[in-house]
Simulated scan of single mutants.
Amino acid sequence: MWPSRNRTETVTCLACGIERARDEAREYDKHGDRWDREDKTFEYLCKACHSDLCHHPRGELEDLLVDLEAGRLDRDAFLASYLSAVEERYGPLEEES
Rank of each mutant, 00 (worst) to 15 (best):
L79W: 01
N6K: 09
R37E: 15
H50L: 00
H55G: 05
G32I: 01
G59K: 10
K47W: 00
D29Y: 02
D63H: 11
S97H: 12
E87G: 07
T41R: 15
G59S: 13
S4M: 12
L53Y: 01
C13Q: 05
A80G: 09
F78L: 09
P92N: 07
R72F: 01
W35N: 13
E69N: 11
D52W: 04
K47A: 06
D39R: 13
G59T: 04
L83G: 09
T8E: 15
S51T: 10
R5W: 08
A70R: 12
H31E: 14
W2H: 09
L61C: 10
R72M: 02
L79T: 07
R58Q: 11
R22M: 08
A85H: 10
R7H: 12
E43A: 12
K40C: 03
A70C: 11
L53Q: 12
A48F: 05
P3I: 03
P92D: 13
L93W: 00
L79E: 06
Y82Q: 04
P92K: 15
Y44P: 15
E43H: 08
E96H: 06
L93E: 02
S84C: 04
C16N: 11
E69Y: 07
S51M: 14
L45S: 07
S4K: 11
G32L: 07
T8D: 08
F78V: 09
D76N: 04
L93D: 03
R22Y: 14
C13E: 06
R75Q: 06
P3V: 09
F78K: 03
C49N: 04
A85F: 06
H55I: 10
D23W: 06
L83D: 08
E88P: 00
G91V: 00
E88Q: 11
S97N: 04
D33H: 13
G32K: 05
C49R: 03
R89N: 06
L68V: 05
P3N: 14
L73E: 11
L73N: 11
G91S: 06
R58L: 04
Y90E: 05
E60S: 09
D52N: 08
D63I: 02
R75F: 06
H56K: 09
R5Y: 08
